[in-house]
């Protein structure tokens, strides 16, 4: 019993850090730029596909990961300059539909380039073994590696936003965009950089999810919604909130699927979200934006 619980808790933690990698970029874009970007899940998907191709060609997982992060960051930057930059001053509705159009385009582009069938990304050889955590409980090291990467990234990101000059400028841009640009900060490039960074994190999440789940069209949609839930629970714009809520969502979703009957299991996360919002309508850790 304890073994099953530990295994599922770790699976939940692994899903949680994956969600956090998406949620962190998304919460910055939402909270600071006030931009609803439904295409974030597509960046996760595009990252996974690029990594799959590079990995198959070169045989190196880490090369695939780096290439995916770099290429997706570039795609993110182009999308921001081409489309989303025009939308900061417009309503949420327009943002939703423009990003919906982008999702349509990217999904179909992937279908044209890689075909409609799901692909199975190979497991990196270094982590293709299991470790015995408890007597009788073998746990794949690859999932432990994902958890470790997620933790390291979240700590780095937290330090970046709260303790560096760049992070300070990002936060200042959120409070008063015109004032910070009057002080000589190129806010336009800064926003593009934040967007590209979020895209790179999404690509890393997609790449790492590839060997566990299959690489397929629409793979970003369910994780997008789950990370949006994490953002809402954590408080829009708060990195710390997103981190805690992503782990809560990941763990409760995974444990729910194992121990609750089907039908109820699928909706545990949503009930959890509703319960949080009834008590705290602005999330657990409201950011001051």
């Amino acid at each position: 019993m304890i073994a099953v619980l530990l295994e599922q808790a770790l699976n939940g933690l692994q899903l949680g850090v994956t969600l956090f990698l998406l949620a962190s970029g998304l919460t910055l874009v939402l909270g600071i730029m006030r931009l609803v970007n439904l295409a974030h899940g597509s960046l996760y998907m595009v990252g996974a596909y690029i990594a799959f191709t590079i990995q198959s060609a070169s045989g190196s997982f880490s090369l695939g990961l780096l290439a995916a992060a770099a290429a997706t960051a570039l795609i993110g930057a182009v999308l921001e300059r081409l489309l989303f930059e025009r939308l900061y001053q417009r309503g949420y509705l327009e943002q939703v539909i423009v990003s919906f159009g982008a999702v349509m385009f990217l999904d179909e582009l992937v279908r044209v380039l890689w075909g409609p069938l799901p692909l199975k990304a190979p497991m990196p050889e270094v982590f293709d073994w299991s470790v015995e955590l408890l007597p009788g409980l073998l746990y794949p090291t690859y999932r432990l590696a994902i958890i470790a990467v997620g933790m390291v990234v979240s700590i780095l990101l937290y330090l970046l936003v709260t303790h560096t000059r760049i992070g300070m400028m990002v936060r200042a841009g959120a409070s008063d965009r015109s004032m910070i640009s009057a002080l000589g900060v190129n806010i336009r490039d800064l926003y593009t950089a934040v967007f590209a960074g979020g895209a790179a994190l999404a690509a890393i999440a997609g790449t790492m999810a590839g060997p566990i789940y299959s690489v397929q069209i629409g793979m970003g949609e369910s994780v997008l919604v789950q990370s949006l839930i994490a953002i809402v629970i954590g408080g829009i714009g708060s990195i710390r909130g997103a981190a805690i809520a992503a782990v809560l969502v990941g763990v409760s979703d995974t444990i729910g699927r194992v121990f609750l009957p089907p039908g109820i299991a699928q909706i545990t996360v949503y009930v959890f979200m509703a319960a949080v919002l009834v008590c705290r309508p602005r999330g657990l850790f409201p950011a001051h934006v």
């Binding site: 006030r34 949420y92 949006l228 839930i229 953002i231 809402v232 949503y270 509703a274 309508p281 999330g283």
Partner: peptide
């Protein structure tokens, strides 16, 4: 924003 996200989630 919260309203948008919550209706989507439900």
């Amino acid at each position: 924003l919260y309203f948008i996200m919550i209706t989507l989630a439900f």
